[in-house]
Design a binder for these strands. Structure first.
Lengths: 212, 212
DNA sequence: AAAATCTTGTCAATGAATTGACAGGGGATT
DNA sequence: AATCCCCTGTCAATTCATTGACAAGATTTT
């Protein structure tokens, strides 16, 4: 049972599997074969079996996969059986939008704090969470056992703040700032660069138009 | 000069190149070699040369790449020399946050309209753009030559709205709804699934913790 | 209970992406 | 002007990811 390294390509597909399995569960469907799932999700059945097998055999020959069981397994693999305490740095439009989004909580991502440099926002409350000044971050992180920070601040201050967060013991960062953070190995970072997505769209648009 | 198919892996890296080149430009740096850029961006020099070469040789032996020129080239490849008119469907927190974000405009992505089902929001104005009811979408799209739609509505209505958008002639969709859209080939879709990013973080977190 | 039908787990084959290596052409230096 | 050094473009090698194929084991049907 050596914990062989799983490729990020596989990990990146797990949330999508989870989504489809959740939908199937809600529809009351008990079992599904890789072939059926393959048609539903528009990927090859081979890939589905290969992916699941990275974590051990969840299926049964002649039967397929038990939806509920598979859902639980993937859920656990993704660490969704544990709760994560998170803070949002930057209470601008995007930060507030994320704070208002309830669905994260259902997955165990609990928003505990909101921070911003702008004094005009201090004390403002979103879903019961009040915006605090940045300099209370360190104290707050210690008392609330925070492991994930969501960065929704401009690129100019993002790198600096990220370094502080690391110093204060953050374990993972979801970064919306349009800049690459410079963090030591072992700190997990996921970047969400919205303008990058728009640019890809733009490329594919002009590319497709040219072909016509 | 056959327009050979460029892999999405390469396209996905172009915006990041563009970002670094923009920064270099702002610093007044005129030339850069693949090796220097490689150190800066923490990717292999080989990959950089390979990537740029997909579009023809922008560099010069013994000199490197001219920053300004390379910036322009990549910019054009991504289609940023053209303007894109876009609408945002869903004027909730996220939709408003995106509408307020100015930086898209600098890249030629012009937000022309905002739509929402909620009558309470109709007439509300964000940066001069007023929120309109959904049933005016078709008319608006025709008169304003819209090519991109940003979907910031709940998953329950996203699929249906996407189909309507396609019917009205949309060319590309940036999808924030947590569901896969079902659009015909040729319509470009980019998904931004925030909870997926959080789940990946969660996996890597628990994975790293286990190794310690 | 036996036969027929599924469907997984897995291995091999293919395909794609990344990396390494180097020839040859420019620029810089003397 | 000649030499030296640098750096690209490109080919080959390697690594990684996806797909195809099938044996073996379960389930369902007869």
């Amino acid at each position: 049972m050596e914990p062989r390294e799983i490729s990020q390509a596989v990990i990146g597909r797990l949330p999508r599997y989870l989504r489809y399995l959740g939908d199937l569960k809600d529809e009351g469907i008990e079992r599904i074969s890789s072939q059926e799932l393959s048609k539903l999700m528009k990927v090859t059945a081979s890939q589905i079996r290969q992916d699941f097998n990275n974590f051990g055999g969840f299926g049964q020959q002649g039967y397929g996969y038990n939806v509920e069981h598979l859902y639980e397994e993937i859920s656990n693999i993704l660490g969704l059986d544990q709760k994560h305490q998170l803070i949002i740095i930057g209470a601008g439009n995007l930060g507030q939008a994320l704070a208002n989004y309830m669905n994260f909580e259902r997955r165990g991502f609990i928003i505990k704090g909101l921070f911003d440099n702008n004094p005009a926002l201090h004390g403002k409350t979103i879903r019961g969470i009040s915006v605090q000044p940045m300099d209370q971050m360190e104290e707050f992180m210690k008392t609330n056992n925070i492991d994930i920070a969501v960065l929704t601040i401009p690129k100019t201050s993002a790198v600096e703040i990220a370094e502080k967060l690391v110093q204060y013991g953050i374990k993972a960062i979801l970064n919306f700032a349009h800049v690459d953070l410079n963090v030591p190995a072992g700190i997990q970072v996921e970047n969400v660069h919205l303008s990058d997505s728009l640019m890809k769209l733009s490329y594919n648009l002009s590319c497709y138009n040219k072909e016509q």
